[in-house]
Each structure stands twice: as C-alpha cells, then as structure tokens.
C-alpha cells in the first residue's frame, strides 16, 4: 500500500458528528466479548482482569467528556456534585446505552459515597452471572467510564462495580471534592 502524499483533511477540520449513528447491539456485544477475552489472556488473576477492564473503560470515558460536553452542554461543565451525577445518570447513560440508569442513591453511612444502580447493564446482558457473585463483574468497564468522566471533570472519585440488585456502581468521592461542594452550597 502506498502511503500517499495527498493533502489530508485533519480530523479537526471536519464537523463533529451528531452522534446519532447506530450499530447493532450484537456487534457491540461481540466486540465487548473480545475485549473481555483479550484482557483475560493478558491477566492471570481476576483482580488483574478487573483492572484492565476498568482502565479500558477509563480511556473511553476520557474521550467522552469532551465529546458530550461540547455536544450536549455547549462546552459548559458542571460544577455541582449532584449535577454531574445526574448528568451521568441521564444524559450520558441515554447517549451511550439508550436509557437512563435506574437509580441514584446517597449512602446512609458515608457522606462521600453514592450508588448508581442498574438491573442489567448492557455489557452483562449475555453473560451468565456466576453463582457466587463474588467474582468478575464485567460492568467494571462501565465503572471505569464513570470514574474517568467524574475525575476528568474535577470530581475525583473511585468507582467500582458490584453484584447487588443487578449491578451497583459505588462512587466514592475524594474528601476534598465533597468539602468543596459544601462550600459552594454555603455561598
């Protein structure tokens, strides 16, 4: 193949797509299946595999931030903690998965912790849930996306995925983030 010297339009010169393109769910399911298997081959333990899926999700998330804030919010970012969570629960979820996440809850025991719940995450739709439920949850990939979006917009947090009422994403914000949010409220 000849590497042509034709002048090439840079990707930045093209208009941003509307993001309305669709591909089949099966296509995504099978691609994700390969993602899991590739990651599995590269890992020797379940935690290692989880980390790999999480970090892949993280990379996806970091691309999404700019794309979605430019497209959906006129490039305006959220500054309130609750608003960014709602942005994830509704706007982001709808754009990526075609529906909102089912529930958002604030933890009773820990101020810094929130739970986002989803009965059947897209990535788990075809996966047989292991009986002990203690093991791999592939939705850790989505947890990576959430963590990346939160951290990238200035709400540093750790996000993990758990088998609980379907899948529950546990969002644990940094102390400093919650403190800052309180200050905003006081003003």
């Amino acid at each position: 193949m000849s590497l042509s010297n034709r002048p090439k339009t840079s990707i930045l010169d093209k208009p941003l797509s509307k993001g309305k393109g669709e591909v089949s769910l099966s296509c995504f399911a099978l691609l994700f299946s390969e993602v899991v298997q590739y990651s599995q081959n590269k890992s020797s333990t379940v935690p290692e595999l989880q980390n790999r899926l999480h970090s892949l999700g993280y990379n996806v998330g970091s691309k999404i931030i700019d794309l979605y804030f430019v497209r959906e919010r006129n490039a305006k970012r959220e500054i309130k903690l609750l608003n960014i969570l709602l942005f994830i629960k509704s706007t982001l979820w709808k754009a990526l998965f075609g529906r909102e996440a089912e529930k958002l809850e604030h933890s009773n025991d820990d101020e810094n912790t929130y739970y986002l719940m989803e009965k059947e995450p897209l990535v788990n739709k075809f996966i047989s849930v292991p009986r002990d439920k203690g093991s791999l949850n592939c939705a850790i990939f989505i947890a990576g996306i959430i963590e990346s979006v939160l951290t990238g917009t200035g709400f540093a947090a750790k996000v993990t995925a758990h088998w609980h009422k379907g899948t529950t994403y546990m969002v644990k914000f940094d102390e400093s983030v919650v403190a800052r949010d309180k200050q905003l409220e006081d003003k």
Binding site: F32, S33, V35, V36, F126, S128
Partner: peptide, 21 residues
Amino acid sequence: VEYVVKNPLSKLSEPIQSELF
C-alpha cells in the same frame, strides 16, 4: 445465539457451562 455465542465467558468449542443458558 443469545446466551452462548454472545457470552464472552463461553467458548464455542467447549461444552456449555453457562447457567444462564
């Protein structure tokens, strides 16, 4: 197709283990 072919944890050439299936 739904629960074996699309299940990343099941191989197509091995006996089916998936509880879901």
